[in-house]
């Protein structure tokens, strides 16, 4: 299939998934018991007052109407206004997105920096103690809940050693040094937990490479095992690793939300939790919609990145003999 056609098709899938997700998000949030009018007026409010406020906020309209007006707004970049604060949802989201984005970015990079070398050694030394140790450590790491890992790191690096702040956030614009200091522990927490999961995949991807003929060829021309794996293994192994990374995006986001609450970072997670508690539905919908958008966008990019990694797929796209 042609490259352009492949991209067009992938974009089509992307749009349809987004529409489906928007409907699902809308229905689920509206299925939550209680509403924002009740929260705003308090438990003592008369039913008349609640009804009046609901009408003001447009909550008395039929659900399909509410859905389409919300969806129509999104299409022109308007996610509505928070019922509670009256601020545009987008204005609430923007600073939060930056926090979560940094956390996820550093978390993923960190997890790769840990998992790729560790997984390579685990594959190469799989029959001796370094391999066993790494595999065992990864198993242990997977059993550690994110929040507990975070608390442990805070105890060591913030409470005992006083190297890093225990929680809070400073924006990059305000003070880059403080910004970095506040992100180290949260990113490390996310990275360690993700790395524990990734190591197993990296290990098996590289074990596969070790059994390939081209690895033996690389050895026969004079590469040592580790260097042969670096030179000819990484790109080949990354074809399967990218798939795993794409699938892990949603897990990383969920992890980020937990990490945010451990370190009281003002990211999407805390915004979402507060909004759910206050039944600020438009904020909930907007936040979840953004998260879904991020996950779908990343998995679309993962799909297209195969073209960069694997020349066989790129060729198949050009010659019109590949599949989507």
């Amino acid at each position: 299939m042609h490259l352009a056609l492949r991209i067009a098709r992938r974009t089509g899938v992307f749009v349809v998934s987004l529409l489906g997700a928007s409907l699902l998000i809308f229905l689920l949030t509206n299925a939550l018991p209680g509403d924002v009018a009740q929260v705003l007026l308090g438990t003592d409010a008369t039913p008349e007052a609640v009804a009046q406020l609901r009408a003001q906020l447009g909550l008395d309209r039929p659900l399909p109407m509410q859905y389409f007006s919300w969806l129509g707004g999104i299409l022109v970049g308007d996610f509505g206004r928070s019922h509670l604060s009256g601020l545009p949802v987008l204005a609430l989201l923007a600073p939060r997105i930056a926090v979560t984005l940094w956390l996820v970015l550093f978390g993923v990079i960190g997890s790769l920096l840990i998992a790729v070398p560790a997984g390579m050694v685990a594959a190469l030394k799989r029959r001796s103690w370094p391999g066993f140790t790494i595999s065992a450590a990864a198993q242990l790491g997977m059993a550690v809940p994110v929040f507990w890992g975070g608390i442990l790191l805070v105890m060591v690096f913030a409470v005992w050693l006083h190297w890093l702040p225990a929680n809070g956030y400073v924006s990059l614009a305000t003070n880059p040094e403080q910004w970095a200091a506040h992100l180290v522990l949260p990113s490390l927490t996310l990275a360690l937990v993700q790395a524990a999961v990734l190591i197993r995949y990296v290990r098996s991807a590289f074990i596969e490479v070790l059994n390939e003929d081209y690895y033996r060829t690389a050895r026969s021309i004079g590469w040592t095992p580790m260097r042969a794996l670096f030179r000819h293994g990484i790109r080949n192994a990354s074809i399967s690793l990218v798939t795993v990374l794409g699938l892990q995006v949603s897990t990383v986001l969920v992890g980020a939300i937990v990490v945010e609450s451990v370190f009281t970072l003002p990211g999407l997670g805390s915004l979402l939790l507060t909004a759910v508690n206050q039944r600020d539905l438009l904020v909930v919908q907007g936040t979840v919609m953004f998260l879904v958008l991020a996950v779908l966008a990343i998995s679309a990019l993962v799909d297209l990145s195969y073209l960069l990694i694997d020349p066989r797929q790129a060729a198949a796209s050009e010659q019109g003999e590949g599949s989507a």
Binding site: R216, A218, S220, N236
Partner: peptide, 16 residues
């Protein structure tokens, strides 16, 4: 000393 292997289809790195 160098070696020529049996399987030309798989003996080269497909990504290089």
């Amino acid at each position: 000393v160098s070696m020529v292997f049996q399987e030309p289809m798989t003996a080269l790195d497909p990504t290089m």
